[in-house]
């Protein structure tokens, strides 16, 4: 079902958290609300599930205005960061609870629970209590409970934050599989760009209560609208160089020039920030940059280098493992100037 936020605003007392947000999530789409903590992404999520009432604006599920409806009358499934399983109930009772409160017949509940438990692969755990389950299993129970009454929208609030690295990888694909299999509209709230990029169809990146950009993961990665977006996506992160434009070249504070074709048309003297992703600096590229390796880190398949340029700024480079350079070496590596991103002083992409 399509979810629409129309000029949605929320304030707590005098603190405005979100002002005039417009957001549309297509039917069957999985959208990530990505942003640093305190940007209002959880507030948005709680407004959609009805725990917070919007201060103004409308929330629509399909064509139905649910703004004034209490949570109980909206058909939403929520997976909380802490899972919020009911500790005194068994797994089966936990999953069946949304149906129990609707007074369905016990036999029907049992059937539905068995069905959904098989879908999330926990059919052998139904008699256990939440405290007897591992983190990943608890997560599956929470998912099953959210999905059992076939909600209009599935809301996931930092669902992977409490899992260890290996389980996180597993649950990432698992949640995506469930979302695709059930064809449900889903909204994922996260501050982890890897989760957002790997699980979702589109990402809405938020900053201070506003959506900065909405795009597909690759679209946003390759074509960020601002330095904030470029800095948020990508691991290892993008490096920024400060300088100004002069006759089609990028000039550092100490006078060193890099001639970049993409700077054509930008007036001389404009203060610029140049964003270079680690994969665009290294063994291949069209302009040479001198520097000194300040830091090297091996990640098994790849090595990550921090290179200090003569003016003191740092470029990161990620390359296949090589043993011929070490910390302290002077290197002359190439930069792919076509892939560099140029931002104005205020962070706008040029």
């Amino acid at each position: 079902m399509r979810i629409l936020l129309d000029k949605f605003s929320k304030s707590f007392g005098t603190t405005k958290v979100i002002e005039g947000m417009d957001l549309e999530v297509g039917s069957g789409e999985m959208l990530a609300l990505l942003g640093p903590s305190g940007c209002g992404k959880s507030t948005t999520l709680f407004a959609i599930c009805g725990i917070h009432r919007p201060t103004s604006g409308r929330i629509l599920f399909g064509d139905k205005d649910v703004t004034g409806l209490p949570s109980q009358e909206r058909n939403v499934g929520v997976v909380f960061q802490s899972y919020a399983l009911y500790p005194h109930m068994t797994v089966a009772e936990n999953i069946g609870f949304p149906l129990t409160v609707r007074r369905l017949a016990a036999a029907d509940i049992r059937k539905e629970v068995a069905e959904i438990a098989a879908l999330v692969h926990i059919d052998n755990l139904l008699d256990r209590r939440p405290s007897q389950l591992s983190g990943g299993q608890q997560q599956r129970v929470a998912l099953a409970r959210a999905l059992i009454r076939r909600p209009d929208v599935l809301l996931l609030d930092e669902p992977l934050a409490n899992l260890d690295a290996k389980l996180r990888l597993e649950m990432r694909s698992e949640i995506r599989r469930l979302q695709k299999e059930t064809g449900i509209t889903a909204i994922l709230v996260t501050h982890d760009q890897v989760e957002a990029m790997s699980m979702c169809d589109r990402i809405a990146i938020m900053k201070a209560g506003e959506i900065v950009q909405i795009a597909t993961p690759s679209g946003m990665y390759n074509d960020p609208r601002s330095a904030f977006v470029a800095g948020f996506l990508g691991n290892p992160p993008i490096s920024f160089l400060k300088g100004r434009a002069e006759q089609g070249a990028f000039v550092f504070a100490n006078g060193i020039r890099l001639s970049l074709a993409i700077l054509g048309g930008i007036p001389d003297g404009t203060v610029l920030t140049l964003g270079v992703r680690p994969e665009h600096f290294g063994t291949s590229g069209d302009i040479a940059v001198d520097g000194k390796i300040a830091f090297a880190e091996t990640q098994g398949r790849e090595n990550l280098y921090d290179v200090i340029l003569p003016d003191g700024s740092v470029l990161r480079s990620i390359q296949s493992v090589r043993n011929d350079v070490a910390v302290g070496d002077a290197v002359r590596w190439s930069l792919d100037s076509k892939a560099a991103l140029v931002f104005a002083e205020d962070g706008r992409r040029l």
Binding site: Y86, P87, P98, R145
Partner: peptide
């Protein structure tokens, strides 16, 4: 008692009284 349990109960469709009776009260038995 964590708030999330209550929020979960409410989005699961339970009334506030049911949430108290079935979810919160058992936590403080």
């Amino acid at each position: 008692v964590p708030w999330e349990i209550e929020m979960a109960g409410i989005v699961d469709g339970a009334s506030r009284f049911t949430v108290w009776r079935r979810l919160v009260l058992p936590q403080i038995r």
